[in-house]
Simulated assay, not measured.
Amino acid sequence: MAEVVLRCEGLRKAYGTVVAIDDLGIEITEGETYGLLGPNGAGKTTAISMIVGILARDAGSVTIDGQPHDVHRTATKRLIGYVPQELALYPDLTGRENLHFFGRLHGLSGRELRRRGDEVLDVVGLSDRAGQRVRTYSGGMSRRLHIGVGLLNRPRLLVLDEPTVGVDPQSRNAILDNVRQLAGQGMAVLYTTHYMEEAERLCDRVGIIDSGRLRAEGTRRDLVTMLDREDEVELLADGDLAAAAQALAELAEVSAVDVREAGLRLLVAEAGPNLPQILATTGRAGVTVRSVQVREPNLESVFLHLTGKALRD
């Protein structure tokens, strides 16, 4: 089994009478990307600040690689790569000079520092721009270099707080590919985003936080199952639609069939594995299917159900 890299239990933080985080507990294993999603004001930033050790908690515990972790423990902080939302780069230094500066803060020097800087530049795809000042970089390039700073110390846990904000689609895809590769190499990743499609594409598990509490957690399939909703299948078709609808309604997996002007609409439990039977049934009823569209419940549906808000609210 994969080792647990981050374990949080019973985290709590209050500011006077306002409770920002209440009994938060999560685990992330090596090679896993965990998405922490929540509307603005949900407590994500407070949670991350306690996890990385820049904000003292009122209660609860955090361990990194099995070691107790808090604001005073330097040894465990060295196991974390933290990439905050706000860029923390020196625009008048080159990309390589930025990495060397931050590398020295991690205790790197000499040949080791130069080698690690070059490795990181290769990972984030900036080797050919390493000698240029950061002020000449695009927003996407700056974001990639920012992630590179978080990788210098070869962290066991990489914490990325909305790393794709304000970048172009090409750079965004490059960042997501980088994160996927890092997780594939065994790094544990804690990822927050305001883009639901990123969570769908990248995260092995997702935790949904609202008003300081973890409302739900699991894989995409786990969370979608909570809604107890079926997949919607639309068939663009020609022929005896009424006969096809009658035949499809007799299938155990189909809970509803509507005849539309240009085809059929079905509600189906687990549409994917049942599509062959659905298509075969419509064919036997004398209907020719020209296209199929499946709409599954998604993380956005779950998020709205649990919080009553869109992710970007």
Rank of each mutant, 00 (worst) to 15 (best):
M1P: 07
E3V: 14
R12N: 15
K13F: 04
A14D: 04
T17D: 15
T17W: 02
D22A: 04
D22V: 11
G25V: 13
I26R: 05
E27P: 03
I28D: 03
E30C: 06
Y34W: 04
Y34I: 06
A42V: 09
A42S: 14
A47S: 15
I48N: 10
M50K: 06
I54L: 04
D65S: 15
G66K: 11
H72Y: 12
T76V: 07
E86A: 12
L87A: 00
Y90V: 06
E97R: 01
H100A: 12
L108C: 05
G110F: 01
G110T: 03
G110E: 04
R116Q: 12
R116F: 02
D122M: 05
D128R: 12
R129Q: 14
V134R: 10
T136Q: 11
T136H: 13
Y137Q: 05
Y137S: 09
R144E: 10
R144P: 09
N153Y: 07
R154E: 08
V167Y: 00
P169T: 05
P169S: 04
S171N: 08
R172D: 08
R172L: 02
N173W: 02
D177P: 02
N178L: 15
Q181R: 15
G184M: 05
L190R: 00
T192I: 04
T192M: 06
Y195Q: 07
M196Q: 10
A199Q: 01
C203W: 01
G207F: 06
I208L: 11
D210S: 12
S211K: 15
S211R: 15
R215T: 07
R215F: 08
R221L: 13
M226I: 09
L227G: 05
D228T: 08
D228R: 12
E230N: 07
E232S: 09
E234R: 15
L236W: 09
L236E: 15
A242W: 10
A245E: 04
E253F: 13
S255F: 10
R265T: 15
P273D: 08
L275F: 10
I278Y: 10
T281P: 07
G283K: 06
G283A: 12
A285H: 07
S291T: 09
Q293G: 14
E300P: 03
E300Y: 03
L306N: 03
L306F: 09
L311Q: 07
R312S: 14
D313V: 14
